[in-house]
């Protein structure tokens, strides 16, 4: 990484209530196409009645370190951006959908207005312009979303991952996701 940063997002599943404010906040901030979402709420209920437990989490592009979408892109439209994030250059995108097929998280979709691929950018337009929070983080009423630089040991995300138990999605897919969930 040229900028020596490793951006990551940490979600506290203990406090997330699945209100979907992050989904609406993202759609509003980024002008996401109608009917589509760059982030979403996932729930997992497990156990045997009446001993049930529910995990609620907000999911989005995992901004993987070894991103298959970047590797499979034939034009270089999908690329590693600031802080190791995964970004899409719409001017280079042909809409071939190789990245969509290669993403194990199904985090991408085609924006019907442009025919180009769309997904979470970790709000790089905000971060790069000095706004320290992503839109989803900004609107989260339970403050369950954290964003920051993992290469900075004093950042909130580093501190949370140091002190709390965490997991990533589909670690066996081998993509090294940068989207963490606190248990």
């Amino acid at each position: 990484m040229s900028d020596n940063k490793r951006y990551a997002m940490v979600i506290d599943t203990k406090t997330c209530v699945g209100c979907a404010a992050c989904v609406i906040g993202c759609k509003t901030e980024n002008g996401v196409a109608e009917g589509f979402a760059r982030d979403w709420i996932f729930t997992h209920t497990s156990g045997t009645f009446p001993d049930l437990q529910m995990t609620i989490r907000t999911e989005r592009c995992n901004h993987c370190v070894d991103a298959p979408c970047v590797t499979s892109c034939p034009t270089g439209a999908s690329h590693y951006g600031p802080g190791g994030t995964v970004q899409v250059n719409r001017d280079k995108c042909t809409g071939c959908k190789a990245c969509i097929a290669s993403c194990p998280y199904d985090a991408r979709f085609v924006d019907p207005r442009t025919g180009t691929v769309d997904k979470c950018t970790y709000c790089m337009h905000r971060i790069e312009n000095g706004i320290p929070t992503t839109a989803c983080q900004e609107v989260c009423p339970t403050e369950s979303i954290f964003f920051g630089d993992l290469n900075d040991p004093k950042s909130k995300v580093s501190e949370l991952l140091d002190t709390r138990e965490s997991y990533t999605l589909l670690p066996d897919a081998g993509t090294k996701p940068m989207h963490y969930f606190l248990r």
Partner: peptide
């Protein structure tokens, strides 16, 4: 049991 729901419908 394991039940999953998602608000995503892209």
């Amino acid at each position: 049991m394991d039940e999953f729901t998602s608000t995503r419908s892209n």
